[in-house]
Computed example of a mutant assay.
Amino acid sequence: MNIPNILTLSRIAVIPLIVALVMMHNTTAQWIAFALYVTTALTDFLDGYLARKMKLVSPLGRMLDPIADKLIVGALLITFAFDGSFSTALTFAAIFIIMREIAVSGLREHLGPQNIVIPVSGIAKYKTTSQLVALGFVMVLPIVPGLQLVATATLWLATGLTLYTGYEYFAGAWPHLIKEEK
């Protein structure tokens, strides 16, 4: 265990609290949820920075970091779809994001035993950032009026980047998926 891994685990641990606060639907809880969420999102950048700077990159950290990102994004997408924060169209955006995340995770799991690594796209960092920013906007909609268009546009941008990076992963993996076994 090292500081970056502890930060990543703390990001995972706080997710149920953020969801519970969001679902309380009162101003104080929303602000606390948003503060925790912003702290969690910033910690995502901090744990990676510290791991590289302190030379503490570990297999555990490489595994947990993307899982933590997917858990916070997935939990909030489900929460916002469940509580009516999303229109029907945004619910489909949430479904597209979750489907892509599961499909790419499955692809990595399938290729892992074959020691095939599909490199992370440069756009993937923007994808994660856009998802986190979009969900932050959705989170504050009940307490900061007038952000609906920004939240919607940002979530669709995140959806587009998510689908595009999913395409990149599958395009990169395709030669490995279609070759016949000997």
Results as ranks from 00 to 15, higher is better:
residue 94 A to Q: 03
residue 118 I to G: 04
residue 11 R to V: 07
residue 125 K to L: 08
residue 20 A to K: 10
residue 52 R to Q: 10
residue 106 G to A: 08
residue 100 R to F: 11
residue 104 V to Q: 03
residue 61 G to T: 09
residue 141 L to C: 12
residue 101 E to D: 15
residue 107 L to E: 04
residue 177 L to H: 05
residue 51 A to H: 10
residue 173 A to R: 09
residue 98 I to P: 00
residue 164 Y to L: 15
residue 7 L to I: 15
residue 151 A to D: 10
residue 90 L to K: 01
residue 149 L to Y: 10
residue 169 Y to H: 13
residue 114 Q to R: 14
residue 84 G to H: 07
residue 61 G to R: 07
residue 39 T to I: 13
residue 33 A to F: 07
residue 65 D to F: 01
residue 68 A to D: 06
residue 78 I to C: 10
residue 132 L to T: 01
residue 4 P to E: 08
residue 122 G to K: 11
residue 36 L to V: 10
residue 20 A to W: 15
residue 142 P to R: 05
residue 141 L to W: 03
residue 120 V to G: 02
residue 82 F to Q: 08
residue 21 L to A: 05
residue 71 L to D: 02
residue 123 I to A: 14
residue 10 S to L: 15
residue 132 L to K: 01
residue 98 I to V: 14
residue 67 I to V: 15
residue 94 A to I: 02
residue 154 T to L: 15
residue 45 F to T: 10
residue 175 P to F: 10
residue 140 V to F: 07
residue 50 L to S: 10
residue 20 A to H: 08
residue 51 A to D: 06
residue 54 M to V: 00
residue 143 I to P: 02
residue 90 L to V: 02
residue 107 L to T: 03
residue 180 E to L: 13
residue 70 K to E: 08
residue 174 W to F: 14
residue 64 L to I: 12
residue 128 T to V: 14
residue 70 K to R: 15
residue 84 G to K: 05
residue 148 Q to I: 09
residue 117 V to E: 14
residue 95 I to N: 00
residue 163 L to F: 02
residue 178 I to M: 11
residue 113 P to K: 11
residue 118 I to D: 07
residue 56 L to P: 01
residue 181 E to G: 04
residue 163 L to P: 01
residue 145 P to Y: 08
residue 171 A to L: 14
residue 29 A to F: 05
residue 2 N to Q: 12
residue 117 V to F: 13
residue 79 T to F: 04
residue 71 L to H: 03
residue 81 A to Y: 00
residue 49 Y to M: 14
residue 131 Q to V: 08
residue 110 H to V: 13
residue 127 K to V: 12
residue 66 P to N: 06
residue 141 L to N: 11
residue 48 G to A: 10
residue 133 V to S: 00
residue 78 I to S: 06
residue 26 N to R: 13
residue 182 K to H: 09
residue 164 Y to M: 13
residue 74 G to A: 11
residue 157 L to H: 07
residue 50 L to T: 09
residue 101 E to R: 03
residue 20 A to N: 08
residue 159 T to G: 05
residue 92 F to W: 14
residue 37 Y to T: 07
residue 7 L to A: 04
residue 27 T to S: 15
residue 9 L to G: 12
residue 23 M to Y: 05
residue 135 L to I: 05
residue 36 L to A: 11
residue 156 W to Q: 05
residue 107 L to Y: 06
residue 159 T to R: 01
residue 84 G to T: 06
residue 138 V to W: 11
residue 63 M to N: 02
residue 75 A to T: 03
residue 4 P to R: 09
residue 74 G to P: 01
